[in-house]
Amino acid sequence: MTLYFGDIFPYLPIMLEALWVSIYVTALSFVVGSFLGLFIYLARASRFRALRWFGRGYVEVIRNTPLLVQLYLIYFGLGQVGINFNPLWSVLIGMSLNNAAYTAEIFRAGINAVPNGLREAGRALGMRYDQTFRHVVLMPGIRNVLPALTNQFIILFLFSSIGSVISLDELTAVLENLNSQTLRTFEIFTIGALLYFLTSAAIAYGARAIEKVAFKW
């Protein structure tokens, strides 16, 4: 059997367009989800037991159920009770909520890894708890957190392929369509995999470059 990558090239623009959908769905859910995640983390670190309990519960539930099931619940489950989201919105909501749980844990680990001595030094200088957090703990915490956040971004990007199950036209869905049109299964998915890989690698590389510029200390 011979491989004909040449036959696939005309479809490359369609693939790239679909890749773009994957990227912006990921980027949007990552930003929204990380913002949510920050609040979930703050809830977990709160003085109030009810908030801590809520944060903990949220993280545990999300992290111990498959993203696919979460997505089905949002798209089909909510549809059944009359709350209808289109595929794009369902994926955005599902991935944001999912990402929030993971980033909350990343923030927690990163902030906890800031040496307690820094906190004490801030307090000993007469700064309030919130001032110490903002001016002393936050930046070292963010620095601790960046590599894990990059990782999480890439994982989320790869997971965005589940959009295909509710026919969101992201990369994997388009690959499947092209596959049934052309029957060039190996070629199509090889190129698809390559697109995922190159994008992930570019994200990792970009993040490292940003870290170098942002953290001169």
């Binding site: 040496p115 001595g117 820094l118 030094a121 000993a124 007469g126 700064m127 953290f215």
Partner: peptide, 21 residues
Amino acid sequence: LNLVRRDVGMVFQSFNVFPHK
């Protein structure tokens, strides 16, 4: 306590200088 601590400086064994400043 924050007023107290203005009047009382403290130096630690592990320096605790702020690395990002």
